[in-house]
Amino acid sequence: MQSQIDPDVLDPKLVAFIRLKIDVSATHMYAPGVRRHIATAIELGATREELLEVIKISAVIGIHACATGVPILAQELVHAGRQSGPREATTPTPVIDGLLERGQFNPLWETLHNWDPDWLEAFLAMGAGIWSDHVLPPLWIELLCIAGDAALTHMYEPGTRRHIAAALELGASREQIDAVLRIVADQGRECYEFALPILEHELSGIAAHR
């Protein structure tokens, strides 16, 4: 049984998107939930473009591997007495340049930007349209990002903090962000949906052999 979210706090379609965002993430990939939440969102009027946008937001979560690991690598190289200098981009980097101009460039990407700006540009370009194609409202995007970063299978504190701050700047209320986090908490109940049928199957198999 999922928590009921007040529709005056979060639009029911956004709630379906948040549940989809959690289940479709590379850190979870729970197919029954993905199917259920896509169906619910479509019933609530979601378009193909909106659902693809939610999936795209989920895909770019991969950058967190570099945001976490590259600064640690840089520190350990210093400790080991091994320096690694910057490398110039071989092609234009309009996505990075735009993020820097708008103050949206994540400081945790700085070392990666110095080491391999071409790779970073190519990766960020994958999700560059999320904030500019106007498929989803900016506040919805930030709330979806909070859900993905706070998810039980991810728990990425820097991103959770950054997107909460961005959501507040866009006018989010405490109740809205709290509701997102309660939806995230519901994810824990999926262990029952996943495991109980397996448990029942194994118990019935044991009983059949007695």
Rank of each mutant, 00 (worst) to 15 (best):
Q2L: 14
I5T: 09
I5K: 04
D6V: 09
P7F: 02
P7A: 07
V9Q: 00
L10W: 01
P12L: 03
L14E: 05
A16R: 02
A16L: 03
R19I: 13
D23I: 09
V24A: 03
V24E: 04
S25I: 09
S25C: 11
T27F: 02
T27H: 03
H28C: 11
M29N: 04
V34W: 00
R35P: 00
R36A: 10
R36S: 06
H37W: 03
H37M: 07
I38L: 01
A39E: 04
T40F: 00
E43M: 00
L44N: 00
L44I: 03
R48N: 06
E49W: 02
L52S: 08
L52V: 10
E53K: 11
I55M: 10
K56P: 03
A59Q: 08
A59G: 08
V60S: 02
G62F: 02
I63K: 04
I63Q: 05
A65D: 06
A67G: 04
T68Q: 03
A74L: 06
A74V: 14
E76Q: 13
E76S: 07
V78K: 06
H79L: 14
Q83N: 08
P86I: 15
R87S: 10
E88R: 11
A89D: 07
A89V: 09
T91R: 12
T93S: 05
P94V: 15
V95L: 02
V95C: 01
D97R: 03
G98Q: 13
G98R: 14
R102C: 09
R102Q: 15
L108C: 07
W109T: 09
E110A: 12
T111A: 01
T111Y: 00
P117W: 03
D118C: 09
E121P: 01
A122V: 12
A122I: 10
A125I: 12
A128Y: 05
I130W: 01
I130L: 09
W131E: 14
S132P: 02
S132T: 15
L136V: 09
L139G: 02
L139Q: 02
W140Q: 12
I141C: 01
L143H: 05
L144I: 15
L144Q: 05
A147T: 10
G148F: 03
D149G: 07
A150V: 15
L152Y: 05
L152E: 12
T153C: 04
H154P: 04
H154R: 12
H154V: 11
M155C: 12
Y156I: 07
Y156G: 06
E157A: 13
E157F: 07
E157K: 14
E157D: 13
P158D: 11
P158V: 12
G159K: 06
T160N: 07
T160D: 08
R162I: 14
A165K: 07
A165Q: 11
A165C: 07
A166T: 13
A166C: 09
A167S: 09
E169S: 08
G171Q: 07
E175V: 12
I177A: 08
I177G: 06
I177C: 08
D178A: 15
V180F: 01
R182E: 14
D186P: 05
D186M: 10
Q187I: 14
R189A: 15
E190F: 04
C191T: 15
C191N: 11
Y192G: 13
A195C: 09
L196F: 03
H201E: 14
E202H: 03
E202V: 10
I206L: 06
A207R: 12
R210F: 06
